[in-house]
């Protein structure tokens, strides 16, 4: 069976982690989330816990594990620490250096080589991406969508919501669901479906793709246009759009008023570690985002439910067919096959 249709095996899960997680950059956070010295967030992905931290103005990413004996260094999802100190034996980590209590007692160990397992960090505007072992620069990876993504990041003022939840489905099922609009009218009839999204246009660039869809609900469109003056944003589109960044990240927005940056990281072979970070843009009327958050939660709960049903229903002998509205899935399969065999 092709790996792309394998939604259960540990072998494929491990292969994906090696060939897709390690060499690519993945979305982590917006700089506003860790703008102060010591601010950190934790990301759980591909059986790893990763800390993104503001270390005297430098954004660092490292595995949340002490190189001494493997103890988890930080046990919170978000917070602020002046120094990263291992709770087990007091090892300290700051500015890329390690401070070891009773250093002289390690005279027989290769102590100079001991360090945190750092990841590469690169920025697109104010968006932070990380990679264990990148094979390309972030700019090369993002391609023609770089300028758009950069502008979006500059319009963002603050994170207004984090929605972390496990989808009880293989990450490819969860991602493929997000890559197509065919399911919207049946799965999201009382949420996203109310926008009356059209088939829209897809722009492909290498492994990434942008879907832009206008609404055929003219009243809704007019309402969205009327509130345009309430926002002081540079990047505005009169459409719903979702930008997929291979392999695990997707950012979506309605008219650029708010953004939901989603990641579909593998948790185990049959579960996705889903996360969506909702960001506000430049407006003084922040109560606008309350309804956005409420709507997003409803949409993602509906997605979680349908993905679980797909996981329960797929069999290894499944032979699938795809409509035009599912063309991004076909493109994903092609990118996946290239990536997984690299």
């Amino acid at each position: 069976m092709e790996n792309v249709f394998d939604y259960t095996s540990k072998e494929t899960f491990d292969l994906e982690n090696r060939n897709l997680f390690d060499p690519f950059f993945h979305f982590g956070a917006h700089q506003s989330e860790i703008s102060n010295f010591g601010d950190f967030i934790q990301i759980n992905a591909a059986e790893k816990d990763i800390i993104l931290i503001n270390d005297h103005g430098i954004i660092r990413a490292f595995e949340n594990s002490c190189p001494h004996r493997g103890c988890r260094l930080i046990d919170q999802q978000v917070g602020n620490v002046e120094k990263v100190i291992c709770p087990y034996h007091g090892w300290q980590f700051q500015e890329g250096k390690v401070f070891i209590p009773s250093l002289k007692d390690f005279e027989n160990a290769a102590i100079e080589a001991v360090t945190l397992h750092y990841y590469s960090v690169e920025l697109c505007g104010n968006f932070i991406f990380f990679s264990p072992n990148p094979q390309h620069s972030l700019k090369e990876q993002i391609g023609i969508f770089w300028d758009d993504l950069e502008m979006m990041s500059y319009d963002i003022t603050t994170k207004v919501d984090t929605n972390n939840q496990d989808f009880y489905a293989n990450w490819k099922i969860s991602l493929e669901n997000a890559l197509e609009s065919y399911h919207v009218s049946s799965v999201h009839s009382s949420s996203l479906g109310l926008l009356g999204l059209t088939e829209g246009e897809v722009t492909f660039d290498g492994v990434n793709s942008l879907w832009e869809s206008s609404t055929n609900n003219s009243k809704f469109h007019n309402k969205l246009l009327k509130i345009k003056s309430l926002f002081n944003n540079s990047y505005q589109k009169e459409s719903y759009f979702s930008l997929y960044l291979f392999p695990y990240s997707m950012i979506s927005s309605t008219y650029g008023y708010s953004y939901a940056f989603q990641t579909f990281f593998p948790k185990i072979s049959t579960e996705t570690q889903f996360s969506s970070r909702t960001y506000a843009t430049k407006t003084p009327y922040i109560s606008f985002f309350d309804d956005v958050i409420h709507l997003n939660h409803k949409i993602f709960a509906e997605d979680a439910h349908i993905c679980q049903l797909v996981q329960k229903g797929v069999t290894s002998s499944s032979k699938f067919v795809y409509s035009k509205q599912e063309q991004r899935i076909v493109a994903f399969h092609s990118s996946y096959e290239k990536g997984i065999t690299a």
């Binding site: 309402k223 969205l224 009327k226 509130i227 003056s229 309430l230 009327y285 109560s287 606008f288």
Partner: peptide, 16 residues
């Protein structure tokens, strides 16, 4: 029909 969250935010902005 159109008294919804988008209308409310527009009223807030108008009053402001």
């Amino acid at each position: 029909e159109d008294w919804d969250s988008l209308a409310i935010i527009s009223v807030i902005a108008l009053v402001d």
